[in-house]
Amino acid sequence: MNTFISTLITGTANGAIFALAALGLVIVWRGAGVVNFAQMGQAMFTTYIASNLIASGNSYWLAFIVALISGSLLGMIIDLLIMRPLAHKKSSSATKTLAGTIPVIASLGILAILQALAGIFWAGEERGFPTPVNSFYFKNGDGTLPFSAFNLFVIGVVLIVLLSLTYFFTQTGAGLGMRAAALNPEVARLSGIKVSRMRTLSWAISGAAGSLAGLLITPSTNLSPNTLDLILIIAFTAAVVGGLDSPLGAVIGGLILGIGIALVTTYGSPENVFLAILFVLLAVQLIRPNGILGGKQVRRG
């Protein structure tokens, strides 16, 4: 029974992190029409920055905040230097052939560059990453409770982020502007919203969300240039399960995957995790390509 409960709690904590990463993907997809395959590469990069700050004697919290800020800056830089010029490029026959895949290819190029740079600067070997609070199960007399302080910390942090994002997107001018720009750029522009600035903002928010996901997941995966690839595909699957254009769907998808993966790992074998992800991804696309909460525009063919 204790195993089951601890599996559920670990799954929920990991699911919360996946939800965050999936949310990052959804925000850029809605805001800029790009599935950013470089997102967890950016997160890997900023987690390395945090890791180095801690290694040179700074506190976890300083590193935490610096990583989040550099995550959003990196997102903005990618938009300003690469994605915005791409979006404004005149179309030729080649761009027509590739159409929507150009930003995907660009994001892969960015991923390759970030991973190579991290390898050149820091790699050598895999390193661990600390947690701010204890990650051992709580002691309860002789036995243990089936969760750790770090589990609670993760769930709490993600909950705060989700609530503030909900507030941001429903109550503030900038948040509403971003939604308008995503929904209908033309009309948004006519009502005085700076659409390209909103796009940059969505890259920044998504970059920070990805960075946070990286900081929270690395204690359990260790840090190397490639470790977060797995988180990217889990986040992508979560986003597709929930509906690629639905933030709430991304959160639900993330939790489903987190708990599902924890159950498969505990009661099946860890090797089956990838197969389970693949199965879920294919099944969703066959049965409900719009995802649980997605809009109607996904399928054309």
């Binding site: 995907v104 595909i233 992508f236 991804l281």
Partner: peptide, 21 residues
């Protein structure tokens, strides 16, 4: 059949799932 980035993401998952298979 689905347009957009779905094929790209799904094929990436398959590439990563290969060792498990």
């Amino acid at each position: 059949r689905v347009s957009g980035p779905y094929l790209a993401g799904t094929t990436l998952v398959i590439a990563l799932a290969l060792p498990s298979v």
